[in-house]
């Protein structure tokens, strides 16, 4: 597999080292001459010095025969244009852009470029670890816009013993299923929650943390 990576810094370095270790053929495009010299000394990758959104430079990097291109510069506009040029001009089958601004993930997708946001990824990882013991399962659906989470209520949960209708949940959150004694049921306002219940929650990434807090209590 041949991969072109446009970017700089440590992310680029370690990504490239990983890829070459797996036997991929990697070409780096970087604007800074000194960094290019360093990279070519430290890595077994071809290094092209220049602007990745210049078709001449992409051609030099062998974009014509590349299987994938990854644009991870700190500037979203550059990442977008690099990917568009690579796929439109050179027909690179997979073009993936880093969206530094998480809002741009959706925009890039709408403009036809696959995008990912490290803020989203790291954020949800931290949230998952933060209350790890009680989370049994976490499943992002709808391109990550909805989380389905399974938790177990402990005795010190602030909602244990309460009726569902008395529980103050943030907006856009739902207690979808309660599993008690291995019996799943879809609860209504008149049902209560007890310690030991396994609860399946539907949340959005933006209210995921607050909803978990409401059900499990403040954690140190």
């Amino acid at each position: 597999m041949k991969v072109i990576i446009v970017g700089s810094g440590k992310t680029l370095f370690f990504l490239c080292r990983n890829f070459t270790a797996r036997g991929y053929k990697v070409v780096i495009i970087n604007r800074d001459k000194d960094e290019c010299v360093q990279l070519s000394r430290q890595l077994s990758a071809m290094v092209v010095c220049g602007d990745g959104s210049d078709t001449g430079i992409l051609k030099q990097a062998g974009a014509m025969g590349a299987d994938a291109i990854l644009a991870i510069t700190p500037n979203d506009q550059d990442n977008l244009v690099v990917c568009q040029l690579a796929s439109l001009t050179f027909g690179v089958p997979r073009a993936i852009a880093l969206a530094n601004d998480p809002d741009n993930t959706e925009i890039f997708e709408k403009l036809g470029v696959s995008a990912f946001s490290t803020t989203h990824i790291v954020g949800s990882l931290i949230e998952q670890r933060a209350s790890l013991e009680q989370i049994l399962n976490l499943l992002p659906v709808g391109e990550g816009r909805v989380n389905v989470t399974e938790i177990v209520l402990e005795a010190d949960s602030p909602v244990a013993g309460k009726l569902l209708k008395d529980i103050d949940l943030p907006e856009n959150a739902l207690i979808a299923v309660v599993i008690r004694d291995n019996q799943p049921m879809v609860p209504r306002g008149g049902n209560d929650l007890q310690s030991g219940d396994r609860v399946v929650l539907i949340t959005l990434p933006e209210n995921h943390g607050p909803v978990l807090k409401a059900l499990t209590g403040e954690r140190k």
Binding site: N75, Q77, L111
Partner: peptide, 16 residues
């Protein structure tokens, strides 16, 4: 003065 900024803004304006 940055081509890529202009291209991104133009696309967002048109498509979104």
């Amino acid at each position: 003065h940055e081509d890529n900024v202009n291209l991104m803004v133009a696309q967002v304006a048109q498509k979104i």
